[in-house]
Design a protein around this nucleic acid. Sequence first.
DNA 1: TATGAATGAGCCTTCATTCAT
DNA 2: GATGAATGAAGGCTCATTCAT
Lengths: 188, 188, 188, 188
Amino acid sequence: MTASNKVELIMKASLTLFTDRGFDATTIPMIAAQADVGTGTIYRYFDSKETLVNVLYQESAQRFMKKVKTDFQGISVREGFHHLFYCLIDFTKESEYALFFLETNKDAYFLNETSRKLLDEITQMLDVFFQRGKSEGVLRNLPSNVLMALLLGAYLKLYQLVRTGSVEITKPFLKELEQCSWDAIRTH
Amino acid sequence: MTASNKVELIMKASLTLFTDRGFDATTIPMIAAQADVGTGTIYRYFDSKETLVNVLYQESAQRFMKKVKTDFQGISVREGFHHLFYCLIDFTKESEYALFFLETNKDAYFLNETSRKLLDEITQMLDVFFQRGKSEGVLRNLPSNVLMALLLGAYLKLYQLVRTGSVEITKPFLKELEQCSWDAIRTH
Amino acid sequence: MTASNKVELIMKASLTLFTDRGFDATTIPMIAAQADVGTGTIYRYFDSKETLVNVLYQESAQRFMKKVKTDFQGISVREGFHHLFYCLIDFTKESEYALFFLETNKDAYFLNETSRKLLDEITQMLDVFFQRGKSEGVLRNLPSNVLMALLLGAYLKLYQLVRTGSVEITKPFLKELEQCSWDAIRTH
Amino acid sequence: MTASNKVELIMKASLTLFTDRGFDATTIPMIAAQADVGTGTIYRYFDSKETLVNVLYQESAQRFMKKVKTDFQGISVREGFHHLFYCLIDFTKESEYALFFLETNKDAYFLNETSRKLLDEITQMLDVFFQRGKSEGVLRNLPSNVLMALLLGAYLKLYQLVRTGSVEITKPFLKELEQCSWDAIRTH
DNA sequence: TATGAATGAGCCTTCATTCAT
DNA sequence: GATGAATGAAGGCTCATTCAT
């Protein structure tokens, strides 16, 4: 078994557990068991539990950023929003546990400087987009982080319903949700 | 120093810490230090950490429910929404850390039966309101919990910005946010 | 309420609880509740929990010693044994909780020097008696503490059965037990 | 150092301390220090302090039962008594702290169902023996538990003297003690 | 390299003791 | 004198982290 494979196993297991149970309620032995490796092995690849969670966070952040960036240029604001919305959806679909990244607050006590900076990068990228929307008069004249909060907050709370099985995702449902979110931030 | 004073200090400290760090990452010694009381004192007033968190939750839930109920009858759906939105605002203003109640998931493992029942009551009360809105054709034809998630999710994420000082609350700002939320769930 | 009265209440309550639950499992608040006094009141009369238990022990020891001493002179060894046996019985009857004294080992970690010395006094008194029995050829030629252990050990173990209700005390039963104990230590 | 070694160290240390100070007055850190292991190590091998004490109790009970059972059939009552008496002696000699088992009351709050059942088995086995003695007219007509109490109570109290060094065990001494105990319960 | 036994700091909780009323 | 609220040291137990194999 290659080292990278072990790392992957550990990361996957951590992500699952952190998402399902939270950072504090997840123990290193739990992760080791889930990843089917020894406890000590985790420490061969990650300095500490905090390092691990930050690596995870950063990996997700990077993946999310890359996804958003792709084909995000040279399209209309409405198309951009559609893109953004489906990035969230795809991102969550690809790995349900990516939610961990989306749900973790910027000021979570276990995040380090690197993680926070990465989030800032994403925020700035989105800021550019939202600024354009505002200058074009398509989006409400609110701070970008507010617009993003409206979008992301609603999305996450909704996804909780999905995860608990209270709500089922269908294409028309997604379409309507996209419209809701769009209506929330666009000018009328 | 009166006993009630200590209870208040403990509750306030707990609420702050639970809101900021979450239940698991908050330790009893932390609470004691923040409340400036001895560790043992907390146990004079609360059976356990779990009792404490539930008392806090229920107190908030009750306060929120009472607030919403007042003047919630015999008004139009739009007016009802306005009422609801400003209940959230006032509730959060009164005690910033009331967010703890709003943010805590129903299935948080530390909530007891009483807490869950209380939340169910609130949910049902809101369901009646959202149903009326839908039957009048004013609100989108989505499940009530979805409509609530859209409203609450956005509000909470937004309030995080307020707490970190990234955004300042002003009357016109609130007015606009109310409109955003309303636009998200109303029919167009 | 006179001070001495409080002291009595506290001592009685302690004795009961120490006998029933043991020294470690008995808390000061428990004693206070049972004695119907405030927690702090106990510390007005006793320096510490350890002081309290030693006072109790010594009081019992003194009472037992006095009881044995009375009419213990100028009688035959057999009569002396009868006296001793019924001292145990009466002592236990008068206050069932006197058992605490009889059951507490000399090397119990909470006993202080004074308590140990008092027990030594009793031991010496009994030694005189047992020596006489041996020199008269009535008792087995074994160390006095051994003879006493045979008597007391059997008695205490038996009394446990009484307390759990497994065995009922009647006059003929006591008569037979006395004979058992006597047969154990007398010469044949 | 092998795992079984640690378990042994822990069990030995616990047994010593439980015997010397009792269950309540013995702390896990004490045991760890005595066994020269970390506190946490104890919990690798025993779920809880209560589990530990029960394992200890059951191990002793089993060892005692096995010892008594061997060559306990088809011998006279007097021979049976001799066997029983030397079982106690050997048992205590093998591990001085086996006393913990003999001294612990059946109704000790920390004993679990398994421990109690094991003691019941032993009690029943002895009951059969005592019944035979009574029906043959060799033993006093007293309940079996009373006869056992006479024997065991005396033995335990005696052994306390041995442990404190007040008395030294020699062959003739044991012989005489056996006779004492036998004289206590036999018919005359 | 991989492991998991071992560890001890730190958690929740209790309770002997103090002290302001 | 009497009280009981307040305290913090210490107990049982968990778990992040280390290290010998």
